[in-house]
Computed example of a mutant assay.
Amino acid sequence: MRSAIGLVVVALVFASLPGNAARARPATEDPSAAERSRLLAEFTDCVTAQKSRQAAIQAFLRTIPRQPSFDAAAMKAADLTCLNRAAARTHSRIEMRLQPETFRDALYPSLYRREFGKSGPVAGLQALPPLRLSDEFDGDTTGLPADFVAARLFGDCVARDNPGDAHALLVAQPAGAEESAAMEKLKPAFTACIKQGQTLSLTRSAIRASVGEAMVKLSRAATTR
């Protein structure tokens, strides 16, 4: 497509790369990573706003990560027109090289903003009984990667401990001042929710992903209870 000032080229590439071992890191990102985080959030907000994508998104999110069908489900859920819009808006060439897990991680914060961003944190999250992984996926959940399960439990713990600041984290612009303030307020929950001997990735994007998934699932459960 052509913008007002020249040719805009867009590409979405799902790169299947082996996952790195999880390790504890400070919740900081350099400016280039911050820019990528904002572009990814804009892309996923566009994807989750498409009614025609909802079934594919839910199917993707219920697919067990790193299984053979995971990559194909990611491609069905993605929407290239959302990159076209971002490219046209910025008058730039955009190529997004995206691992399916990174796409999944960004979808949950986006879904939370879409479903609960304006209404605020749903009451009663702390009182909900434990959620079962077997209800969240299609397939044998014993095949879930150990680091994924650890991150899922961490996010659930943080969301229940401090849903107000978890909400503030998810509705804030990635890598912005409001997100940093929410991260700071959530630090006691981070400390309390890391089990002894456990290692987790504590980058901003990893925290957004695990807290986002937990807040979506807990908020839906509290709303329909």
Rank of each mutant, 00 (worst) to 15 (best):
A41Q: 11
S16H: 04
T28P: 04
A56Y: 05
R38K: 12
A55S: 12
S32H: 03
E35R: 05
A33C: 10
A21T: 13
F43I: 07
D30Y: 05
E29C: 02
S52Y: 11
E35M: 11
F14W: 02
F43T: 09
A49R: 13
C46R: 06
R38Q: 13
L39Q: 08
A49M: 12
A15F: 12
T28C: 09
C46A: 10
A21D: 12
T48Q: 04
A41E: 09
G19Y: 01
R53H: 06
R23Y: 06
S16D: 09
R25H: 07
A56F: 07
P31I: 05
D30P: 12
A33N: 01
V47W: 08
S16W: 07
A56I: 09
D45Q: 05
R36M: 10
L39F: 08
E42Y: 05
A56M: 06
Q50R: 10
A21K: 13
S32K: 00
S37H: 00
P31N: 01
A22D: 13
P31K: 00
S37F: 02
A22I: 09
P26A: 06
R36N: 14
C46D: 04
A27I: 04
A56Q: 11
L39P: 02
F14N: 03
L40I: 09
T44A: 05
R23D: 13
C46H: 07
R38A: 08
R38G: 05
A33M: 08
V47T: 02
P31V: 07
R53F: 11
R23N: 01
T48N: 10
R36E: 15
A15T: 13
T44H: 02
E35P: 06
S32N: 11
P31C: 02
A21M: 13
A33H: 03
A55G: 01
A49T: 06
P26K: 01
A33D: 10
D30C: 03
T48M: 04
D45F: 04
P31D: 03
A27Y: 08
A15L: 14
S16L: 14
E29Y: 05
